[in-house]
């Protein structure tokens, strides 16, 4: 029986969706557009130019931003590699090692960094390092980043591992592969898209963090978000919009990559497995 009314449609839902997308994107798009503004004042439009991008790379504050960007990228790479490794081990433990003591506790623990409000984590970490007499510096930022990157890396890795049946590892073991060989030669290659996707998300999360970094960084050490925050506190200048646009594009590229890699892997393996 053909229905006259489509039961999946409700009046106004479509316009709400467009409203939602406009609300989410309008501020970002406006900042992107104004970052190409030739005018020195940030309010009036003076034609298109790249002068503020030039300013970011070669202007008065270029040195500061370059150092901050370098710190951010180095910390993000190390934090992402470390947390992805830990998360891969954890996912294997949670999904491939049967029952063991402390398993349900482990699940809660891995997700703990997501439950505790960021500002509380920041305060607790600052107090902890101060109490054990550990000087704030690069290492404190790095350790804090590794902690909160673990659950973000864990999510896509565990999701992927859940989609892979263990028959391949079983088969390898039947053919006298050791468990380590089964892991290295079978599970790890199958897991590669999920691991890469987790790595990219952890990288972005570390690169973007402001609140925790702001608390645990040593004096004089800046990452890109803390440098942008410091500059923005003194007023939003056009060069802030240019650098924000750049950082925005980095995030979009990484998330898109993570999404495509995750999906690509599924298309290739999803049907076979």
């Amino acid at each position: 029986m053909a229905r006259k009314v489509d039961l999946k449609r409700f009046p106004g839902f479509q316009s709400m969706t467009y409203l939602c997308l406009i609300l989410l994107y309008a501020p970002l798009l406006i900042v992107m557009v104004y970052s190409f503004n030739d005018s020195r004042s940030i309010t009036s439009w003076g034609g298109i130019s790249l002068r503020w991008y030039e300013d970011v790379f070669f202007g008065l504050e270029a040195e500061k931003f370059r150092a901050a960007a370098f710190n951010s990228v180095v910390i993000a790479i190390i934090a992402a590699i470390t947390s992805t490794t830990i998360a891969t081990m954890a996912a294997t433990g949670m999904l491939r090692a049967g029952k063991f003591r402390g398993k349900s506790f482990s699940f809660a623990l891995i997700n703990l960094p997501l439950m505790v409000p960021e500002i509380v984590t920041a305060v607790a970490t600052l107090i902890f390092f101060s109490a054990i007499g550990f000087n704030a510096g690069y290492l404190t930022i790095l350790i804090a980043h590794i902690v909160f990157c673990i659950p973000f890396a864990y999510l896509p890795i565990a999701a992927r591992m859940q989609g892979i049946e263990d028959i391949y590892e079983q088969a390898a073991q039947d053919l006298y592969a050791t468990r380590f060989e089964a892991f290295k030669l079978i599970l790890l290659p199958l897991m590669a898209p999920g691991i890469l996707s987790g790595f990219l998300l952890a990288f972005i999360i570390s690169l973007d963090d402001f609140i925790i970094t702001n608390f645990v960084k040593g004096a004089g050490i800046e990452t890109l978000p803390t440098a942008i925050f410091g500059a923005a506190k003194q007023g939003i200048k056009p060069n802030i919009m240019a650098i924000s646009t750049l950082l925005l594009l980095v995030s979009v590229v990484f998330v898109t990559l993570s999404y495509l890699i995750g999906r690509m892997g599924q298309n290739k393996n999803g049907k076979q497995i």
């Binding site: 433990g93 491939r96 090692a97 049967g98």
Partner: peptide, 9 residues
């Protein structure tokens, strides 16, 4: 969970 790495959890 499956049990390939039973005991290593």
């Amino acid at each position: 969970s499956t049990r390939t790495y039973q005991g290593l959890g």
